[in-house]
Write a protein that binds this DNA or RNA. Structure first.
Lengths: 210, 210
DNA sequence: ATGATTTCTGCACGATCGGTCAACATTTTT
DNA sequence: AAAAATGTTGACCGATCGTGCAGAAATCAT
């Protein structure tokens, strides 16, 4: 009992390292192209050890996808009826762009999964994502009814926010190539945030000029 | 000579069918997951015949990616200095969303390629896409200097247009799932177009209310 | 200390992969 | 009609895949 903590800590450290490696390898090679041996090499352990902790490639993949899904869901906590729309949506965009920078591999794994018609996590979409989305749409439409923002399509606003923010993760390589081959600097990330918010929030705000 | 036309027509028909099948299979399974035999099955011909016309999987893939790249490039023909900015950008968004609907597989292949850091078509990015993008940025910045649109970031406006329009292709499955599991109707596609243009173009227009 | 449990690892398997090749069929040229 | 060129196909090869499994190594409980 006294040493159980050490054992658990070790287990958790190894599984965490596997998950980090898997997120990256799944993102860079796709589900089919990501071999267990490559994930193991990325984590610095033998292939058999990966299987020991996650049984199958599919179960490991589901864990990876579930992680980014939970993180994204938490990023929209600010979207509630009582919050100021511009502030709340701005925070959401900010957080989502921060995640695009800090967790780009997770975003890419999700994108790959959706592009391929969610062969493995379709239940996530139908259960959690659907109800989650409907809840946010209700909030945005309430904002509109209360005259706080322009009467736009709440659904397509959400899609636009997802698309633009995740673009900076999924298409990082294209953006880098168009940036003379060098990654965006801190300053450029701030500029990106400002530009995205400026563009999208102006489509939301009631008053023409801020 | 007289019958060369028939021979060529056959060759062209078979290669066209292979390209169509390949675009779909590459999109739905990723580069690694797309096997030549699956492409062949999709095209209704033996595997060897695919290899006969395209030699390697990589060469076939490059042809598929090159096609969608050329189509997208032509879609931005309206972005010139002499055109009206709102009209030109609106046309560009319209065309891009039409392509999202009619050529979703091509968009998905491109997304997959960029997500995986363009291991096969990096030369496209550095040569053609870079200069093409810089040219469009020059046009948009000229519009700004002439006071025709708000002083926004031309680069990030382009990224936003790419992100939102391609989202409707790459994330079709997610959008469908969030649409009670049924594909968007004609009416809903029109609504999508209107919503995207309303949102993005308002961020571009000089006057607050249209 | 010793037995039980957990963790770790190398090996072997059937399946599938991209690509080669020779044989065959068809079409084109002479 | 014969020869040449082009198109088509199934069989085959070495490599890699996911996964099962037995046993070694380490850690735990008593």
């Amino acid at each position: 009992m006294a040493t159980e903590g050490i054992q658990s800590r070790n287990r958790q450290e190894v599984t965490a390292r596997i998950l980090t490696a898997a997120e990256r390898v799944f993102a860079e090679f796709g589900y089919a192209g990501a071999s267990i041996s490559r994930i193991a090499a990325q984590a610095g352990i033998p292939k058999s050890n990966v299987v020991y902790y996650f049984e199958t490639k599919e179960l490991l993949y589901r864990r990876v996808v579930g992680e980014i899904f939970d993180i994204w869901r938490a990023a929209a906590d600010s979207i509630t009826i009582d919050n100021d729309p511009i502030q709340a949506l701005g925070d959401y965009i900010d957080t989502k762009l921060d995640l695009a920078r800090t967790r780009p591999y997770g975003s890419k794994v999700w994108a790959n999964e959706i592009i391929q018609r969610a062969p493995i996590v379709q239940d996530y979409l139908e259960d959690e994502l659907r109800s989650w989305t409907e809840d946010r749409i209700v909030v945005i439409e309430a904002w509109i009814e209360h005259g706080k923002i322009r009467p736009i399509s709440a659904r397509h606003l959400l899609y636009a926010i997802w698309a633009t923010t995740q673009h900076y993760a999924d298409f990082t390589h294209q953006i880098t190539t168009l940036n003379e081959g060098v990654e965006l600097t801190n300053r450029q990330w701030v500029e990106s945030k400002t530009a995205v918010k400026d563009l999208l929030l102006r489509g939301v705000e009631k008053h023409g000029d801020a």
